[in-house]
Design a protein around this nucleic acid. Structure first.
Lengths: 195, 195
DNA sequence: GGAGGTTGTAATCGGATGATTACTAATCGG
DNA sequence: CCGATTAGTAATCATCCGATTACAACCTCC
């Protein structure tokens, strides 16, 4: 396999693993085994585990913004909902790429780390700038959009969809938070969607 | 020092440390040094690092719910704002106890862990039940309250207040997200509030 | 066909880390 | 004053983990 392809493959599996267990909770050996290669190769290809995580984070942020820009620039077609709702659906659809949401969330709780924290802040502000400058959201719209997005992410973080059916109050909470997107979320992150 | 007092002291410093670096990123030795005792003593007092984290998590959740209940049951007095706003202020005031918000967030991103994840889900559903059954929030009110709370927490997670003044867009984002609470947040979590 | 680059591994190192054991100094009730 | 409980440590263990080094197989182009 070419180094470039291998690189992409490692970043793919690393996104899933970092999403599951975070930076400190994931070992380079787990990444290597998931990619079917040896641990030293992972380290040599990225230099350090931290650089690997930073690349994973950058890719996740890039995918997020790319998804948003595609929606923003695509013709509305038969979708007559406001842009907030359309971008929201795009955010949910990121569930299709394993680990993206949860890797981002892991980065967002690492503000204390001098390197990862700085990258996380930069990434979050980039998203803000997109909503303000490109999507032309008003401050109030930004606040609602980001708020709902973060509740969504945290509920993914605690794996509430994966525990669906075990606690009627938890199921009700999902209904309250995800509303009409509940079905989609359960399809993509519900029980049995595991790794 | 009595074992009970020592226990509380360890839980206090551990809350700060776990809030800063999470479960996997914090060592029992860091906790011990912060408490001014030896590492084996920390381990023996709590059994395992995981049990220590679970106690820290329980305490944080307990403090959160206790704060909410106190506000709910206290007379409105001169505060004529709706209960959503009053509980929101209480949530912000939890910044007064170092590490509570960020420890909770770290737990909320650990849904994958069989033990910590289960505790985190239980805790989040407990909060939901409080809002529904005790605070009598409507589903829409719950959604708004939790959404804003999670955006608030994530912005704390990336240490946006601590980086205040370094990026005008970041400062603007804080204004958009925290609004009238911006001043209080900066006082309690702004630059120079460090450990 | 062989020189050189590319893809990859085996072996190993050094340090960190959670946990265990065995011990000690102080405190306290009788 | 003494036996026992309590608060605490020093030393050490076994393991894990990221990183380094040295080497091997393979491809490719002249």
């Amino acid at each position: 396999m070419s180094a470039a392809d291998r690189r992409e493959q490692i970043l793919d599996v690393a996104t899933g693993l970092f999403g599951d267990r975070g930076f400190h909770g994931t070992t380079t050996d787990q990444v290597a085994q998931a990619a079917g290669i040896s641990q030293p190769y992972v380290v040599r290809m990225f230099g350090t585990k931290e650089k690997l995580f930073l690349e994973v984070l950058d890719r996740a942020l890039g995918l997020l913004l790319h998804t948003f820009r595609r929606i923003l620039e695509s013709p509305a077609g038969d979708d007559d909902r406001p842009m907030q709702a359309r971008l929201g659906s795009g955010y949910v659809d990121l569930l299709g790429t394993r680990g993206v949401h949860r890797t981002l969330l892991h980065a967002f709780v690492s503000g204390n780390d001098p390197v990862i924290g700085a990258a996380a802040r930069r990434g979050f502000v980039d998203i803000y700038r997109f909503l303000r400058d490109e999507a032309k959201f008003t401050p109030a719209e930004v606040e609602v959009f980001l708020s709902q997005g973060m509740l969504f992410s945290v509920l993914l973080g605690i794996e509430l969809p994966a525990a669906f059916g075990q606690d009627s109050d938890a199921d009700e909470l999902m209904q309250v938070a995800f509303a009409d997107k509940c079905g989609v979320v359960l399809e993509m992150a519900g029980p049995g969607t595991a790794r």
